[in-house]
Design a protein around this nucleic acid. Structure first.
Lengths: 221, 221
DNA sequence: CTGTCGAGTTGATAAAGGTCAACAACACTG
DNA sequence: CAGTGTTGTTGACCTTTATCAACTCGACAG
């Protein structure tokens, strides 16, 4: 369930708008409350988006990699609802939204792309809710790894051998678990011979079995 | 966080497209896998959307009431991703999506409305993830009741006195809890004198305190 | 080279919520 | 109007995951 534009789609958008911006690791593209002016296509790097509650709790709501588009949360209220933070030195392509709306009036293809990208985000969020509401810790971690794997594959990288860009705590926040639980689950999956985990480096040993572990498993919670 | 169009917005859409459809209680507007052709504005009644996993598990992802718009999950893949089911006899207004896209090219206001409605859904989903990932049972139930309350208020109904349209099981599925937990939490909130629960009828006794219980409370999970 | 800090792992224990089961209150059916 | 199915409540018990704490490993600073 990767969200975002294909290479072809991306280049189409590229021609219409432009302006790149470098974001250093740890820096934000935008923060909650910032005025919304643009959406952003990730050209290079890795981001998380994070929602914060009044009481200080915060939740990672998404990770974005090359080719994916973020910032659409800001459209409705003209104000961003979450923080978008680079997990490594990154580059985004800024797409001024009102220009995009104006141009998309003239280029129906572009309009349709935009709608699809937004809809894909809605679908992805629903899958996320399913995960948070109906899966247990181990299943969530497996789903997370398989999802990353698939997205790396779609970008031409190795599907079974990759590096995590985020900490255990960020994974935990994303999955609605504590970092200790994430760590234990990794260890457990490793003991079972399903994955190999060495700090941030992940190797999927038996992706097929991981997949069946997801689709089997009744009950849950 | 109500999603949907205001009266004025709704009537605008009304003039552009139309065709009402009655949906009896328990019937679906669309089901997962159905070809996507339209989005739907709720004119009357109450709906849930539900995602189903391969293994039979299912999760209620949203409730929709009068004035709210559903079906946008289908845009990206031209296929619906969830089931939309009426919780009472209802009526929706069908908005053929490709027509909408064509017309919105000529009516920029309409285009902006569409984008806002879609973005509102994204924001709402992120709030939902926050709830599922970071709140405990009691907080989730409180957030759910306050959200309903606010949406009834926005529609001119009593904010502190309303009837639930869904079962405990549907609430549980939506909140990532079991129906027993929902039931117990209702009983507990009643014992505390915060709400009054009689089957499906809810009366909020101390909405102010409920609100502080949400924004206070650190930790969570 | 030593000290400190952040990230990660692992263990012991506690708490939250799930599971199973019994039962009550209704609504619907024959 | 008795019988059955659905919905909701409550209790006893158990599983999962959180919490707290100790410890390792590197990276970086002085």
């Amino acid at each position: 369930m990767p969200i975002g534009l294909s290479e072809a789609e991306l280049s189409l958008v590229d021609n219409l708008v432009g302006e790149r911006r470098k974001i250093a690791r740890g820096e934000a593209i935008f923060r909650s409350g910032d005025r919304f002016t643009a959406i952003y296509a990730v050209k290079l790097g890795f981001f998380k988006t994070e929602v914060l509650a009044e009481d200080g709790r915060h939740q990672v709501t998404s990770f974005y990699m090359t080719g994916e588009v973020l910032g659409m949360d800001g459209i409705s209220a003209e104000t961003h609802y979450c923080d978008a933070i680079a997990l490594e030195d990154s580059e985004v392509c800024l797409i001024p939204f009102h220009e995009l709306e104006m141009i998309s009036v003239k280029v129906p293809t572009l309009q349709r792309h935009l709608h699809r990208v937004m809809s894909r985000e809605i679908v992805r969020d629903q899958g996320m809710m399913m995960m948070l509401g109906a899966m247990r810790a181990e299943e969530r971690v497996i789903a997370f790894l398989l999802n990353l794997s698939q997205r790396y594959l779609a970008r031409g990288y190795a599907a079974t051998d990759f590096n995590l860009r985020m900490t255990r705590e960020e994974i935990g926040s994303y999955l609605g678990l504590k970092l200790e639980t994430v760590s234990r689950t990794f260890s457990h999956l490793q003991d079972e011979g399903l994955v190999q985990v060495e700090k941030k480096h992940i190797r999927l040993i038996d992706a097929a079995r991981l997949r069946t572990m997801l689709s089997q498993e009744g009950a849950g919670r």
